[in-house]
C-alpha cells in the first residue's frame, strides 16, 4: 500500500517510550527493552538479519514473563503483535531493505527520473544539504551518500520527476 503507516516504526516508537520510562529496577526491563530497541533500530536502518528478528521475539517473550511490573511485562506487546499481524513488513525491512510505508528514512532512496526531469534546477536549489549535483544542460542527480531524505526536492518538483 502507498502511504500507510510503517508498523515496524510504530513498534519502535512505543518501545522508545518504554525504554525512556523504565524505572531500571529489574534486569529484563532495564537492559532487555534497550536491547529490543537496538534490534528494532537495526531493522529500520536496514541492517538486520533474520536471526535478529528471531532474537527479538525470544527476548520479547522473556521480558514479558520475567519483568517485575506491568511496564516491563507489557513493553513487548506492540512488538509481538506487530510481528504477528504485519510480519511481511518486518521481512521487507530485513530481506529487501525496503520500508513499504516509505517511512523509515534509512531505507528510502530518492532519485530523479531523467525522462521527466526538465532540468530546471529547483530541486538542487531547495536541497538543504547540497546533495543534488548537476546543471541545466546535463540535468541533475541526487548523491545518495549526502541525501538526508527530507523530501524537499520532491515537494518542489513541478514535474513529479523525483520519486
Amino acid at each position: 500500500m502507498d502511504d500507510t503507516k510503517c508498523m515496524v516504526n510504530l513498534a519502535k516508537f512505543y518501545l522508545g517510550f518504554t525504554v525512556d520510562e523504565s524505572c531500571g529496577k529489574c534486569t529484563p526491563c532495564r537492559i532487555g527493552t534497550k536491547r529490543m530497541l537496538e534490534i528494532l533500530e537495526k531493522i529500520t536502518e536496514g541492517e538486520a538479519t533474520l536471526e535478529d528478528l528471531e532474537r527479538l521475539e525470544t527476548l520479547a517473550k522473556t521480558i514479558q514473563k520475567a519483568s517485575v511490573c506491568g511496564l516491563g511485562q507489557t513493553a513487548p506487546n506492540p512488538i509481538l503483535s506487530t510481528i504477528k499481524y504485519f510480519k511481511d513488513e518486518y521481512l521487507a525491512h530485513i530481506n529487501n531493505k525496503k520500508c513499504p510505508a516509505k517511512e523509515c528514512k534509512a531505507l528510502l532512496s530518492l532519485s530523479i527520473n531523467s525522462e521527466k526531469c526538465k532540468k530546471c534546477g529547483l530541486c538542487a536549489k531547495n536541497c538543504p544539504v547540497g546533495a543534488i549535483k548537476g546543471d541545466r544542460e546535463h540535468g541533475y542527480e541526487i548523491d545518495e551518500n549526502i541525501c538526508i531524505k527530507c523530501g524537499a526536492c520532491q515537494k518542489n518538483c513541478h514535474f513529479s520527476a523525483i520519486s
Binding site: M1, T4, K5, M7, L10, Y14, L15, F17, T18, E21, G70, L71, T74, A75, N77, P78, L80, S81, T82, K84, Y85, F86
Partner: peptide
C-alpha cells in the same frame, strides 16, 4: 490498516 489499543502496553489490531 490497524488500531493500537493500550498505548505502549498494548497490541495492534489489524
Amino acid at each position: 490498516k490497524a488500531a493500537q489499543t493500550g498505548g505502549p502496553s498494548g497490541g495492534c489490531i489489524p
